[in-house]
Simulated scan of single mutants.
Amino acid sequence: MRLYGITGWKNAGKTGLMERLVAEITARGLTVSTVKHAHHDTDIDQPGRDSHRHREAGAQEVLLSTPRRWALMHELREAGEPSLADLLSRLSPVDLVLIEGYKHAPHPKIETYRQVIGRPLLASKIGTIRAIAADGPVDTGLPVFDLDDTAAIADFILREVEL
């Protein structure tokens, strides 16, 4: 599986770009999976639902299956967060895995950047950032794409991973 990341400051457009890239790249006939890293505690389960009750009762893993999808929830129960490599090993094979977050991991990345945030480019400190997707001009030696030019960004990523 080939990996490519989208990183950037909070509210810089990462999730929107991820969503558009998945649609663009799958429309080209490639298979794509995604990994999203969150720095805060999040729960995809709802209190009161059967699967939530199973987890709250102490189940290590709860697999929820429906006619349309299945989801596996794994409780860490005081264990450390697994590495990105460990998580990737759990994915089914696809052409490309797009990773949101994990800015310091070794895979190549595009940084999303919005001028209004007023923060410096991460690319100046993170060597695995290969390009910038911005909402305006940026002073960098890297390729710069318009944040909304999904097709051009997808072309760049697919060239980078040789797909």
Results as ranks from 00 to 15, higher is better:
Thr150Glu: 06
Tyr102Glu: 11
Lys36Thr: 02
Ser51Pro: 07
His37Asn: 08
Ser92Thr: 14
Gly5Ala: 11
Tyr113Asn: 06
Leu30His: 13
Ala105Asp: 14
His52Ile: 11
Ser33Arg: 13
Thr140Pro: 00
Arg55Ser: 00
Gly136Cys: 07
Gly127Ser: 14
Thr150Lys: 06
Gly16His: 06
Lys125Cys: 08
Val35Trp: 04
Tyr4Ile: 06
Gly16Trp: 01
Glu162Cys: 08
Ile99Cys: 09
Ala85Cys: 05
Glu75Pro: 00
Pro106Ile: 00
Pro93Asn: 06
Ser89Leu: 10
Leu84Thr: 01
Pro143Gly: 12
Ala154Phe: 07
His54Cys: 04
Trp70Gly: 03
Arg55Pro: 01
Leu163Val: 03
Asp139Pro: 00
Arg2Lys: 15
His54Lys: 00
Leu3Trp: 09
Leu91Pro: 09
Asp86Leu: 09
Asp50Trp: 00
Gly48Cys: 09
Glu19Asn: 14
Ala57Lys: 05
Thr112Lys: 12
Glu100Val: 14
Arg119Tyr: 09
Asp43Gly: 10
Asp50His: 04
Pro108Ala: 04
Ala131Gly: 05
Gln115Ile: 07
Ile110Ser: 07
Val138Asn: 12
Ala59Gly: 05
Glu111Asn: 14
Leu88Ala: 14
Gly8Ile: 02
Thr150Met: 09
Leu96Trp: 10
His52Lys: 06
Gly141Pro: 08
Leu63Val: 03
Ala71Gln: 09
His104Trp: 03
His37Arg: 06
Gly136Arg: 07
Gly127Trp: 10
Leu63Phe: 09
Pro108Thr: 02
Gly29Met: 01
Leu88Asp: 09
Val116Tyr: 10
Ile25Phe: 13
Gly58His: 02
Val32Thr: 09
Ala85Asn: 02
Thr128Pro: 03
Glu56Lys: 03
Leu158Trp: 13
Arg20Asn: 15
Leu158Ala: 13
Met18Lys: 10
Leu3Gln: 08
Tyr4Phe: 15
Glu24Tyr: 04
His74Tyr: 14
Ala79Gln: 11
Leu64Thr: 03
Asp139Trp: 00
Pro120Asn: 09
His104Ile: 01
Pro137Tyr: 08
Gln60Val: 12
Gly141Ile: 00
Val144Pro: 10
Trp9Gln: 03
Arg90Cys: 14
Ala23Trp: 00
Ile132Tyr: 11
Arg119Val: 10
Gly48Tyr: 12
Pro67Thr: 01
His74Trp: 11
Arg53Ser: 06
Thr112Gln: 11
Val94His: 09
Thr42Gln: 14
Ile99Val: 15
Leu84Asn: 03
Leu63Asn: 01
Tyr113Phe: 15
Glu61Thr: 12
Arg119Phe: 09
Ala85Leu: 13
Gly13Asp: 05
Ala123Gly: 10
Val94Asp: 11
Glu81Val: 07
Gly118Arg: 05
